[in-house]
Design a protein around this nucleic acid. Structure first.
Length: 424
RNA sequence: GCGGAAGUAGCUCAGUUGGUAGAGCACCUGGUUGUGGCCCAGGGGGUCGUGGGUUCAAGUCCCGUCUUUCGCCCCA
C-alpha cells in the first residue's frame, strides 16, 4: 500500500525467510559432502566484468543490469548472476595454482531490472555451484547428481532434468549455419517477430521460442547433437551413460539452449510446470573457454544456478519450529522469578518465551495457548512464595507443581513420551 | 520496454440503477476469586491506493498516476 519499498525488492518474514534458511542449510550439507566449499563474493563488481563474461549482446547485460557510476566515475553493476564474480575471485586468488580442481558454491542476492512476476523479482536469490579445473565428463555427471540430490533434499518432486549438448567452438558454427539454412527455407511470416530478429543475431534462441508456429518449425530442425564433433559427442554420451547407470533419467531436449554466451558442451535445466510462466528452477552447463576469455588461465569449468524464489514455489511448508514452553506470571514477584527461570531454561538449551503483559489471567492463558508451546509454566503468588512453578501440558491438560529448580529436568527429560523430541 | 486484471478494516472479500461503509476470520475485554483451544456477549479499528473531473451527492461514473498481480520479452 504505502510505496516506500522498491519495486521488485521484497521483505521476507517467516515462514518465507525460514524456507530460505532451510534451503541454504540443506545445500550446505549436501554440497559439503560433494567436496564443495563456500565462497562469498561482493554484490558489486565492475560493469566490464559482466559485459565480458555474460556477453555484450545478451539482454541481461544490455538492459537488465543495475549499473551506475561510483564517486570516482567508475562504472559498477549489481551482479545479475554469480558466475562472473566467482571467476574473478578464482583468478585473483590464484587458486588454480594451489589445487587442480576447485569446487565452490555461493548463495546470495542477484539483481536484474525486469518486470516482476511469479517466480521473478528484481532482487532474487540463487544457489550457485561451480567446479573448475576438470574436463572430465565424470564431473558433469557429478554436478547433476549433486543438483538432483539437493532438489530431493528440499523435498522437490515433479521436476524433470533436461539436458543437451551445445558443442564447442569447433563444431557449433557448423550447426548454427545448418540451422540458419533450415530456417531460411521457410517464408518470412512463418516465424514470429522475435524469431525473425533472432535468426540473424542469435539463431540458437529460435529453438526455445514458445510460439506455436515457431515450435512446429523447429520440431524438425537440425539437432545440436548431430553436429557435435566426435570429442563433444563422446563427452556427452559418457555423461548420459553415467546418469542412466545411476538411475537418473535425464530428458534429452534438443531445443535446450542457454541465454548466456559462455556455455558449451553439456547444458541442462531442471524444469517444472508449476511456477507460472517460468519453467526453469535451475540451469547451468559447461563453460570451458570462459576463464581464458576473461584473461585468466585456460581452465575448464561447469556450474549451475538454482533460483530460490522458484524453488520456494515448489516446496511444501517448512516444518514449523516448536516452542517448548510459555511462561506466564501473575504478579511482580512472580514475574521476577519467572524471568530468571525463563533465561535459565534458554541458556540450558530449551526454547520458549515468557509473557510480560500485565493483563488478566485468562488473557495470559489464551496467549499461552496461541503460542503453540508444548508446556505452559505458571507462577502466581502461591508458587513464588515457595519457589515453585506449575507445569501444564497443553496437549492433554495435565499439570503438576514442582520446585523451579526441577523445572529444567522435567522439561528436558519429560515424564510423558511427548516431551522428548524438542528439536531446538 | 509492451499487454490483461486488480487496489474497500491486520487477512479474505461484499457493497445492489451514484445517497456520507459491511461480513467472515484475526485482535481486545468480559461470561464472579488462578487455567487456553469450543460457545456466548460486547469492543477497537477504514483519509474506500492516490490526484483531478462530472454531480446537490462518488467506494460506486470519467481521466491521470502509483502499486500489486498474471502474461510477453528475457532468464534461475
Amino acid at each position: 500500500m504505502s510505496s516506500t519499498r522498491i519495486k521488485g525488492f521484497a521483505d521476507m518474514f517467516p515462514p518465507q525467510s525460514d524456507m530460505y534458511t532451510y534451503m541454504e542449510s540443506v545445500a550446505r550439507e549436501i554440497f559439503g559432502r560433494f567436496g564443495f566449499v563456500e565462497l562469498r563474493t561482493p554484490i558489486l563488481e565492475f560493469t566490464e566484468l559482466f559485459q565480458r563474461s555474460i556477453g555484450q549482446e545478451t539482454d541481461v547485460v544490455q538492459k537488465e543490469m543495475y549499473t551506475f557510476a561510483d564517486r570516482k566515475g567508475r562504472s559498477l553493476s549489481l551482479r545479475p548472476e554469480a558466475t562472473a564474480g566467482v571467476m574473478r575471485a578464482y583468478m585473483e586468488s590464484g587458486l588454480s595454482n594451489r589445487e587442480a580442481v576447485s569446487r565452490l558454491f555461493t548463495f546470495g542476492p542477484m539483481f536484474r531490472y525486469e518486470r516482476p512476476q511469479k517466480g521473478r523479482m528484481r532482487q532474487f536469490h540463487q544457489i550457485n555451484c561451480e567446479c573448475l579445473g576438470s574436463h572430465s565428463p565424470f564431473v558433469d555427471a557429478e554436478m547433476l547428481c549433486m543438483l538432483w540430490a539437493f532438489l530431493h533434499g528440499v523435498g522437490l518432486k515433479d521436476v524433470e532434468l533436461h539436458v543437451n549438448s551445445l558443442g564447442c567452438p569447433n563444431c557449433r558454427p557448423r550447426f548454427t549455419q545448418a540451422l540458419q539454412e533450415y530456417l531460411h527455407a521457410f517464408p518470412k511470416e512463418a516465424l514470429c517477430e522475435d524469431c525473425a530478429r533472432r535468426l540473424a543475431s542469435n539463431p540458437l534462441r529460435v529453438l526455445d521460442c514458445k510460439q506455436e508456429g515457431c515450435r512446429q518449425i523447429t520440431e524438425k530442425a537440425p539437432r545440436l547433437l548431430d553436429y557435435n564433433c566426435p570429442s563433444c559427442r563422446t563427452h556427452f554420451d559418457k555423461v548420459l551413460h553415467l546418469l542412466e547407470g545411476h538411475g537418473m533419467h535425464p530428458v534429452l531436449n534438443h531445443k535446450l539452449v542457454r541465454g548466456l554466451d559462455y556455455y558449451c558442451r553439456t547444458t541442462f535445466e531442471v524444469v517444472s510446470g508449476n511456477i507460472g510462466a517460468q519453467t526453469a528452477v535451475a540451469g547451468g552447463g559447461r563453460y570451458d573457454g570462459l576463464l581464458r576469455s576473461l584473461g585468466g588461465p585456460d581452465v575448464p569449468g561447469i556450474g549451475f544456478a538454482c533460483g530460490m524464489e522458484r524453488l520456494s514455489l515448489l516446496m511444501g511448508e517448512t516444518p514449523a519450529r516448536h516452542k517448548l514452553f510459555c511462561l506466564l506470571a501473575m504478579d511482580e514477584e512472580s514475574r521476577q522469578q519467572g524471568w530468571h527461570l525463563t533465561q535459565n531454561l534458554r541458556l540450558a538449551g530449551l526454547a520458549g518465551e515468557m509473557l510480560y503483559a500485565e493483563s488478566g489471567f485468562k488473557s495470559l492463558m489464551r496467549q499461552a495457548g496461541k503460542s503453540g508451546a508444548r508446556y505452559c509454566l505458571i507462577i502466581g503468588p502461591d508458587e513464588s512464595k515457595q519457589g515453585k512453578v506449575v507445569i501444564k501440558n497443553m496437549a492433554n491438560g495435565s499439570q503438576e507443581c514442582l520446585s523451579q529448580d526441577r523445572a529444567l529436568h522435567y522439561l528436558s527429560t519429560g515424564q510423558d513420551t511427548t516431551g522428548k523430541d524438542s528439536n531446538e
